[in-house]
Write a protein that binds this DNA or RNA. Structure first.
Lengths: 339, 339
DNA sequence: TTGTACGCGTTATCAG
DNA sequence: CTGATAACGCGTACAA
């Protein structure tokens, strides 16, 4: 016997009244409402959201799919999203993909079966994604984060990766750097990498400098010394990293090799994680507004769910000029030749 | 009309057969099964887990409640949990509490209404928690992580915070440090802080040294220079931090003040986040097995759900001796006196 | 303000 | 292997 019936019997009302006492309290006389709450408490009754969902066709759940939580940019965004969702009466179903398109598909299917009211996701590659193609056929409110979207098929909250990296590169050039290398994680796993590299490359070219080929790491978070050494031999004076963890790892490795940062080599990251500012040298970085991004993506999704018109938004990044970056060393190549 | 009925009509079978084709495919003749899948595809049919949940009394969802995701120890654990859960056919409902007992209660209530099959949580203070008291009345499978549990009311997967910090303190003492301070985040927000401090204090006392009062920060992740300066004046030669982010922040601040780490002052963290190893100086730390902890907590919870007997487990920590720690400087106090 | 009655999409049961 | 039917717990017309 459904426990709602038990409550109704104890209080001496119909089950409809009990249901109303929880779903729309204002429709029930305060007096009986209190009696119902009291009985519910002693019986340990509590509304069953699955049943409610079945009836109302709304789960009050949002599906969140992110590549990983090991990067503070994602975990911070997730925390902001959860808070915003909860404040609006929504729960979050969370899964990570590790940039694996197969996992993306399976997670999506599961979330659709759960009947989440909407989806917030960052896919590995938005230009070529079975996951997104599948979503298109489903007509479920969806917000992309981080993924650059050319066409108008999806709403996306993101930043201008190209412009941000173009800008960062220009800053380094203004500081006199000519030999600038760019480091990324596994390049083809993420569609952001290419945009950022293009921004770097175009800024170099525009300044009459030569863009170097991308330096690709096996990991999104760790730099190996072996990949750094060749760059140093090429007299690179500045390193642009596609995220802060790579940048910090680079600094650590450089210092361990005896290099001075920024005196001999400048390092610039991407994301603006808070740890970067507190370390020494503090990390120069292209800061992404990750709380805002999380907050806004949930807000946008809720608006879509309620049928309001929404638009994609490109959030501003901010270049944090910190200690890890300085003017290019003079006569670097000469020094090296002498040594 | 429920879409399962539509499918059944197209294929010309009963809805029971369609349901079986998805829930227990082996009970359906391959031929008809294929026809059903085909029809489902063209109709865009997909099982509704809420309805299934209502019928089977099992949501295949686990509720996860953590203090924050801004500490890699939690986000890494969450990622491991999610993977493990998904591999076993479970989804994760995730929420963060910011160590707020009120939020803990609200989130718990919500998860219970969602009828999660089990709960994995880290509460602010397990000795005095309305949240845990409420859970006791509910008889829902629950696994605590990180929370030390004296009594046998709850299953907990954790580490021995006391012993780990006792050990770390001993190491510093063996390295000749006499003036060791311990830094923590907001002390009373977390029950781990007290245990770790006690480990430190007892190790100091056992070595005939004087334990200093705990140095409490306003933030769990950031150290302010102002709190560091008094310690330096007291000739402290080693800093024990209750997590790695505080430790890294300490190192950054010390270096910015012109101090050499570890030559003048050693710094030891807690958690063993991977970033710590790649920085320079690499961070000495008490490493927690966070993937194992996540993995094991889900495994344990699933066993509880399936009615198997389980036990609490205390996982081993490992002291990572790295560059941020060295022998205590000689004659520190004399140097200071002369200056 | 409250009661009646139906349906949301599944699965379990039992019969065939 | 398949069909018929009754739950699962709730929300909400509609009626009282």
């Amino acid at each position: 016997m459904s426990s709602i019936v038990q409550v109704s019997k104890i209080v001496g009302v119909s089950r409809a009244t009990v249901a109303r006492a929880f779903a729309s309290p204002e429709q029930v006389k305060p007096e009986t409402r209190e009696k119902i709450y009291q009985a519910a408490k002693t019986l340990g009754f509590r509304p069953n959201y699955a049943a409610r969902q079945l009836r109302t066709q709304s789960s009050k759940m949002l599906g969140v799919m992110l590549p990983t939580l090991n990067n503070p940019i994602f975990s911070g965004q997730l925390e902001a999203m959860e808070k915003m969702a909860r404040e609006n009466g929504y729960s979050l179903l969370v899964a990570t993909t590790e940039y694996d398109p197969q996992a993306e598909l399976e997670i999506l299917e599961n979330m659709l079966r759960q009947r989440v009211d909407g989806l917030i996701l960052t896919v590995a590659n938005a230009q070529q994604s079975d996951c997104l193609n599948k979503i298109k056929e489903e007509a479920i409110p969806t917000v992309l984060t981080h993924n650059p979207i050319q066409n108008t098929d999806f709403i996306s909250i993101n930043i201008d990766n190209y412009a941000a990296m173009y800008d960062a590169t220009q800053r380094l050039i203004e500081y006199g750097h000519c030999h600038i290398a760019m480091l990324t994680g596994p390049f083809f796993q993420s569609d952001r990498s290419a945009l950022r590299y293009q921004g770097y490359a175009d800024a170099m070219t525009a300044a009459g400098l030569i863009a170097m080929p991308v330096v690709e790491m096996h990991s999104h978070t760790q730099v190996h010394i072996d990949t750094l050494l060749p760059l140093l031999k090429q007299n690179v004076t500045a390193l642009l990293c596609s995220n802060d963890l790579l940048a910090l790892s680079s600094i650590g490795n450089l210092q361990r090799l005896g290099y001075l940062v920024p005196e001999q080599i400048s390092v610039v990251g991407f994301d603006g994680i808070s740890l970067g500012k507190t370390l020494y040298p503090a990390l120069s970085s292209v800061a992404q507004p990750r709380e805002l991004l999380g907050w806004l993506s949930v807000k946008t999704l809720l608006q879509m769910i309620s049928g309001q018109p929404v638009t994609s938004q490109t959030l501003c990044t901010q270049f944090n000029l910190e200690e890890s970056m300085s003017n290019a060393p003079q006569h670097t190549s000469i020094d090296k030749d002498l040594s």
